[in-house]
Design a protein around this nucleic acid. Sequence first.
DNA 1: ACCCTTTCTTCGAGACTCGTAATAATTGCC
DNA 2: GGCAATTATTACGAGTCTCGAAGAAAGGGT
Lengths: 392, 392
Amino acid sequence: MSELRNPTSRDLRRANRAAVFRAVHRLGPAASRSDVVELTGLSAATVSVVVGELTERGVLVRDTAGSGRASGAGRPRERLRFDRDFGQLVGIDVAETYVHARAFDLSLTPTASWSSDRGPDSVDELVEMCRAAVADLRGSDLLGVGVSLPGLVDVAEGRLVRSPDGRVRDVAVAAPLAAGLALPTVHVDNPLRASVLAELWAGAGRSEPDLAVLTFGTGVGAGLSVDGVLRRGVTDLAGEWGHLPLLDPARTCRCGRTGCLEAYLGAPGILTTLAERGASVTETQTDAIAAFAADIDAGDPAARGALADIAEQLAVGLVVLRMLLDPARVVAAGWVADALGDRLLEPALDRAAPRMLRPLPDGWLQRSELGDGQVTLGAAALALDDAVDRLV
Amino acid sequence: MSELRNPTSRDLRRANRAAVFRAVHRLGPAASRSDVVELTGLSAATVSVVVGELTERGVLVRDTAGSGRASGAGRPRERLRFDRDFGQLVGIDVAETYVHARAFDLSLTPTASWSSDRGPDSVDELVEMCRAAVADLRGSDLLGVGVSLPGLVDVAEGRLVRSPDGRVRDVAVAAPLAAGLALPTVHVDNPLRASVLAELWAGAGRSEPDLAVLTFGTGVGAGLSVDGVLRRGVTDLAGEWGHLPLLDPARTCRCGRTGCLEAYLGAPGILTTLAERGASVTETQTDAIAAFAADIDAGDPAARGALADIAEQLAVGLVVLRMLLDPARVVAAGWVADALGDRLLEPALDRAAPRMLRPLPDGWLQRSELGDGQVTLGAAALALDDAVDRLV
DNA sequence: ACCCTTTCTTCGAGACTCGTAATAATTGCC
DNA sequence: GGCAATTATTACGAGTCTCGAAGAAAGGGT
């Protein structure tokens, strides 16, 4: 019982081109036709033709140089890689306190960066900053621009439905951005979804296409991939894990509601818990979280107590996530997850595991390997998904 | 970023055959080729060929009789329907206190029924009952048998992982059933998943393939369909909505954990709440729930108070469901939902709606139209999904 | 040098969908 | 009752596509 589609044989070729594209992407710069044959299951003949088309168009280049992993004898494999100069994608990570932009080639390797240490206060300013970023980064052909905005984003309409604090509501962003950048479309979404795309193209999703990505930062949320496809839900609300009302309603979230996970697991929530436990809290959020990590390692009792609270809160969130969705893997991303790491994840998992109805698969919960540039990479991937369909 | 597949043009035909099959199913007995063309988007030529194949094989018959909805003039449309005698599917709904079995033709129209007013106490007895049911129902060719078992079912392994009360653990069922029925395979799953398939083939899923089906009975749970595909999760745990630990941990669930939705929304939980509110509770569960509905209508204060509690509890479950998954539609099924109906759903929705970050689409939460036979129909659909691939 | 192994390309066969033209089956009008 | 108009269905030719098998390419080993 799947979709009612209408595929002609030309669409079949399209699908196979896309499959080859993704295979080369996943195999990395050492990819050869033989590897692609193995990974896609297509015949050597078809792969040969499709690769020929892609090189023809300049998407791929054939590297006669060092053979891949030819098994000793025989004709060496020709290496395939994306042409660095075919064009570039720009991903822009807009936050409340900064804007980071990055240009990538088709292999999603970063080629240049741009940043501002403050966020935009209005849509006009947003457009202006994005224009400055793209102007600065622009090198070869611009294939597409993706922008990640914090908050709830209506992708189809290209609108920011509400900012994380609820102060900005329902403003159009995709259209002004497209106009400002003189592009036919600009892809807009939020960091949760960008992070999933980043994992799918360049992280854990390369080996496991069914996953949830939890982002821990000032805000908290989840991005969901089902069989390699990003799911946004029918009203772009899927993954608002951070605002599930699972915890003690005594604490109010910045979204205005009570008991949200984010009110406890977001950086401000963590600092509140620390203060309640009597730990000292330094001024900036990032320093305070780093100090928290150090205090845990040093065995500070207040920090350890707070950690226990927070691990318990995260455990509840993990139980709900697993028992409703049961993803194959969960990836923890975001700067708070990077800073606290297994100090937080391990105890949370230990608490969560016995409360689920079945044992957890090994390696179910992992930290993201992508680090800082995850959201810019994912934002670029927003545009890539589209570019693959369009140009390849 | 979707799947890496390997479709040859023969697979394309397979896909189109399946699309035509589903289209005829969805259009019902008044289907004509033109309707199929419209629904699938395939060309008239292709539909003609595929329908020709299906009639050739005896799956479809062409009814020259009463034209469909020819718009006045012109050659009348030839009606297409499934051949009632092509073969039958048997769906078996095994519960703790009864076993219902039903035979269906390819259009999922019931052709015969069988039932027992007690449930099996062992796997041997289960096999024996299923054998008796199938022997009784067997008419034309048997295309497949699907069995719904309460509890947590590992579909790939064909095992019952645990019964709802946790007393039975990890027993093989699919293999003994297949052996007992002398069939190559028997499809096993739980009522939550069966209910989703029932909605997809014969209920709300015909117009909206992205939905969650909430089943309210002695147990409580959800079944999830994403774009028309039943999702079970990687360890068959997806949809265990009834055991989300969202509510007051003071009450213990029969699964042994505390605060589960099921402990409040399952029939025994509802009766507990009624008793706590000082309402009188009659002996059998079904009578008590019916009496509850009557008391609500009569304006009984204890019943109204209990209803408010229960609506609040359901509201929490609805908020979590929407904000994590955001399905296009939610269908309420099961005998408790049938008995209480909008008395419960409306106030729950009223409480839930303002707590979600975005307004709800119209008609988001609806009662199932399928009634009693939903699980047997869904169990048969478990086998149908497979039969379409295999035989058509 | 020559053979062997492995990789890649070419070519013919078979399958499929589609658009268009032809055929079939009615209704409405004269 | 007969004929034109209308709609549904089928037949046919063109264009694609994938695949297997056979052939060409590119080194390594002896």
